[in-house]
């Protein structure tokens, strides 16, 4: 799995918003790969650029005020940021399914659940009406909705939050996507319902071999499902590693602080580390490390140069001037 060609390759993605307060540098030169069948977790605090990154590569940000300034998003030999919009629409919701946190892009309240699933099939696949219906039924069943025949005729408001999320997943999976992008799909749900959805997505990914990008605040969720994790801060990726390496030995001071600030269900009595201060303003392009004002390790270079994301070994990339393990600056030049 690890050696195969990436199914999605994002490089140097930069997105800005022109606002009354000035230009918001929401995403700054973000690059990452997604391998076939891989589960990639994307974590970071509110405003760190997680949603804008994913919406940008599907060109779903409002333009204006948004602008994709630089970048490539290579999928199946084409650049999603360059192809014409009709071609992109084919891919969006077809080979790349998505579940967004934004209610605007979620279910339509005046259409039945069945209609919405079939709609997706109508756009992306050439199936006779009979088969579409059968497929919609099969999908509802697949995502674990009880009495699916009846549910096809339901409107979204007649369903609970957990059921609606299952329907969204059914819509996203309708055309057997190669990639599923899920933006905080369980954040609004109770833990027992969240556990149902996570279990569902894990199963689906095994049966369908879909690669998943899962955005979340919850480092617990990621620990349980992801193969690899990307940590975002201030519109940039600051660390990327396999899930085991990231949790066992985080290398970026922000990741370290984040993991140290979490209480654990299975332990009691540790003090919670707190990261002092608050997240950076995005109104200036990053000219220094965006974490420097809050970082306990910051030294001169951190305040004057923005560290680039660099591979430090086979499984990890890091954007930091300091080497926490050896307690010295990482690059001596």
């Amino acid at each position: 799995m690890m050696s195969s060609q990436p199914v999605l390759r994002v490089s140097d993605l930069t997105t800005q918003f022109d606002t009354q307060d000035g230009v918001v540098h929401a995403v700054n030169s973000v690059s990452f790969d997604l391998r076939p069948g891989e589960f990639l977790g994307v974590v970071g605090e509110s405003g760190s650029g997680k949603s804008v990154t994913m919406m940008s590569l599907l060109r779903l940000i409002p333009m204006p005020p948004g602008e994709i300034v630089t970048g490539e998003a290579e999928y199946d030999g084409v650049d999603l940021l360059q192809i014409d919009i009709d071609e992109l629409r084919e891919i969006r919701g077809g080979k790349i399914g998505f579940i967004f946190q934004d209610p605007m892009t979620s279910l339509n309240p005046v259409l039945t659940v069945g209609y919405q699933i079939e709609e997706s099939l109508r756009i992306h696949q050439d199936l006779p009406a009979e088969q579409r219906k059968a497929r919609a039924l099969e999908l509802l069943d697949l995502v674990g909705i009880p009495s699916p025949e009846q549910r096809l005729k339901s409107y979204p408001h007649e369903l609970s939050g957990g059921m609606r999320q299952r329907v969204m997943i059914a819509v996203a999976l309708a055309c057997s996507p190669k990639v599923l992008i899920a933006d905080e799909p369980t954040t609004a749900l109770d833990v027992t319902i969240q556990a149902q959805i996570i279990e569902l997505v894990k199963d689906l990914r095994e049966t369908l071999n879909t690669a998943v990008i899962w955005i979340t605040h919850d480092l617990g969720v990621v620990a349980g499902v992801a193969d690899r994790v990307v940590v975002m801060y201030g519109g940039q990726i600051v660390e990327e590693a396999t899930v085991d390496h990231l949790y066992e030995a985080p290398q970026h001071p922000y990741t370290m602080g984040l993991l140290g600030s979490l209480p654990r269900l299975d332990q009691k009595g540790m003090d919670l580390v707190s990261i002092p201060g608050s997240p950076p303003s995005l109104l200036k392009p990053p000219q220094a490390c965006t974490f420097a004002p809050r970082c306990p390790y910051a030294f001169e270079r951190c305040h004057s140069e923005n560290p680039p994301l660099t591979a430090i070994d086979e499984t990890r990339k890091l954007a930091c001037w300091w080497d926490v393990e050896n307690e010295r600056p990482r690059y001596d030049d």
Partner: peptide, 22 residues
Amino acid sequence: SAVPVPDPKVEATRERIILEGD
């Protein structure tokens, strides 16, 4: 059992009781 623990090793071995329904 439904609460995720931020530790991949613990998560890999935890027994989860998945409740049905709402």
